[in-house]
Design a protein around this nucleic acid. Sequence first.
DNA 1: CTCCCGATAT
DNA 2: ATATCAGGAG
Length: 212
Amino acid sequence: MKQNKKEYVAEIIKLLLKSYKKVKCALNYKEPYELLFATILSAQCTDERVNKVTEELFKKYRAVADYANADVKELEVYIRSAGFYRNKAKNIINSAKVIIEKYDGKVPQSMQELLVLPGVARKTANVVLGNAFNKAEGIAVDTHVIRIANLLKLTKSDNPVKIEQDLMEIVPKKYWTEFSHLLQTLGRRVCKARNPNCSGCSLKEICPSAKA
DNA sequence: CTCCCGATAT
DNA sequence: ATATCAGGAG
């Protein structure tokens, strides 16, 4: 049973890799802390909009210490269009403070340490670990992964933690980070929440939910 | 389960 | 004009 599922997943990965050669993280960043803050900003917000926000944000604040010392109101102006900006501004500043005080200004490189940062849960931690450090401890489960993993019948759950466990069972560890990228890319471009384009999908032959 | 919020598709 | 998009905390 599980073996069949692993072959099914291998086929999914193969087909998606063919369509999306080298997909990487859709968020723009140079330093690990930039990816961390970009990912905090991406909560309930498209990566596209986050990139617009961070383009200016990263010019204004150029180190973790700049965020730790930032004026909340001023930071809010930069990130406003990403939504939930009061929470996010607080979370970024307070995470920056923890990183300065407890981790000597370096973003910690373990799930356990990242999860303590305000505004950081498993999705954000997985994105940072997998992309900035190449130290995946899990699979980043966002709204696209939730939707498509269910459409592909890779899980029956709507709970992100359970979905992540289900996926970790059947996706080879070396693909954990890339698997999220592939589903997110598919989700943004083809298997959209609103108007899924099944006829243009690389997985139409094998997807149990494909419509003609 | 509710609150946090702006942008965009319809 | 309004529904829908898109994570985390309490």
